[in-house]
Design a protein around this nucleic acid. Sequence first.
DNA 1: GAGCACTGC
Length: 702
Amino acid sequence: MDSKFNLLYKNSNNIPKFQIKRKPSPVVFNNGGPTARKKIALNLNVQTNNFKNKNKVSIQEQRRKLPIFEKRNKLLELIRRHNTLIILGETGSGKTTQIPQYINSARLQNNGKIGITQPRRVAAISVAMRVAQEVGDAVGVGETVGYTVRFEDVTSPRTKIKYLTDGMLLREAMVDNLLMEYTFIILDEAHERTIHTDVLFGIVKQAQKAREEKKLRPLKILIMSATMDVDHFSDYFNNCRAVYLEGRTYPVNVYYTLTTHEDYQTACVATFFKIHQQAPWDHDVLIFLTGQEEIEAVAQQIRILSRDPDVAGPSVKVCPLYASQPTTQQITVFQPAPENTRKVIIATNVAETSITISGIRYVIDSGMVKARTYHPATGLDMLKVQRISQEQSWQRTGRAGREAEGYCYRIYTRSQYEHMQKSTIPEIQRANLSIVVIQLLALGIHAASFDFMDKPPKDSILAAFEQLKLLGAVETVDSRTLTTLGKKMVQFPLDPRFSKILLSAQEYGCLEEILTIVSLLSGESIFLNPSSKREQAMTSRQKFLSPYGDHITLLNAFRVYNNLGSNSQRSWCHEHYLNMRNMSYAAQVRTQLLEVCQRLKLPIVSCGNDTEPVRKCLLAGLFMNVAELHKEKQYITLDKRQVVNIHPSSVIHGQQPQFVLFTEVVQTSKCYLRGLTTIESQWLYDIVPDYARSHIRFNKDI
DNA sequence: GAGCACTGC
């Protein structure tokens, strides 16, 4: 079998050269003996397809069949007795959908509301819809059961069970830090440790205490999580009680490689074909890799090899899967493969939490992930391929055991596994904290004294304060309050630098233009660049190009789009290789930001075709993001004196203006500036004189 | 002349 497998590479001469770096050897795994067998527990993920009433069993019957049902009374008793409770639930335990209903029908919330947070919008919406159906409201979602996410509030004054994104609850907390609307707050998927959930931990804990002290209506807190890190959670919540709920998962046989494999991509391909030749055709395979380019390359490789006449096994349907993919392509992942065809999904970590696919019996785990890390010392974001954590590896493994006993092939040795970090570093410890710091200040809290479950690095907090001080949001780095400007900035759902830009627009008379640019920067890129049609894409968009840079180019494209009727927008986007989804998202953001501006009574004026006010205004918030030409094609940032390059995707690439402003720096193979606008150094002296004097002169002295 | 994981307000 192994020698046969080797043959298959000899005959395949069609493979693009960048894909196979060396001749692959077969990957050898341990035999997956009894010790490798482990029944694992996972979080509940939203699975809309599971909600379908397959066997015409009534909804109530389905509810009774959930593992959680038998524990209903015991759970209610515990919830009654404890003010804070941790609920650990395996996948399919039904905790997300059932517990709020149990509380509601037992009238535990005493005429108050139950708020249940989710890290993702789709989850909040789809769970709410399902629960509304279960509750049996004739009118459906928006009555007893509702949801609130950005751009959408489907609740009524009668809503008792409200699903919302964690970011949304955080916004609500900024209006009322005691969260008086709720008698129950359920923080679901707490193990994911999103930056919002982490801040909410401290907020709800504080609200509970404050309400008790002020003899107000008590706040009950439930923390729901997959089975990890229990002690850590419990320690933080004053040693509160934790209960465990069984789920519905199947055993997964786990295999490790016997030797290390640096070329994990090729090892994944080799392992796939090993499985492919043995497993029944209807057992689908899920491969975890790190990024778009890598996924497309491996997909291509598998397609080519599977057509090789020497390869045994059924046909193969290859489905790449990553978040930035057009939705139409993502849909194919959910469609079952035709008869006698095996489906192989090659995915990033979207498939770990956000997207659940049925039919997976095999998982191949590269053990790698691409992650973003913020470095406070340089202010740079770095995107790096690194090893996953042990928790993450079990999350991936669990994807094979959703419907039946499964298999997981780990492209790393047992010893490598044992050397992995136990948990993924929480986002709050590796992110730029300026938003968190300003939001906490809006609540009168200094981030350095906030009760975090895991404290972010001191340097990150300090860097955030220094940035806020430069922007004029705080007086000093010790401030516990915001300036008048800071209070306005925090109204916007934006990075403080962008809020500052919006608030400066009045001075330059260009709020119309700035609203558009900031909205476009809030979402993903509107430019499509299919590798096969790159030339056409570039020429079709030629007319939007501005010599002043990427921001003005974005503005030009949006202006045309926005003046079109809604029925011609789609085809126009298609013609110009623009992403319609991201374009209309930006339009939605723009509407929201416009509302905030109107609330703040900012005059909505336009500067017409003059770009100078727009560029100056951008500089008012992004003055710490300026680079000066240093030598041939090389720039140096004024702020931290980093050597940087213009990213080739920029419209400025190829030109060498003396000074540029940028929206972000990302380090990949080099340090690249992305999102550029040309500026005059004199503007810096006019807008931020102190900053300009200290930084420009300093740079010249080198 | 490179190529960016994933969320969210």
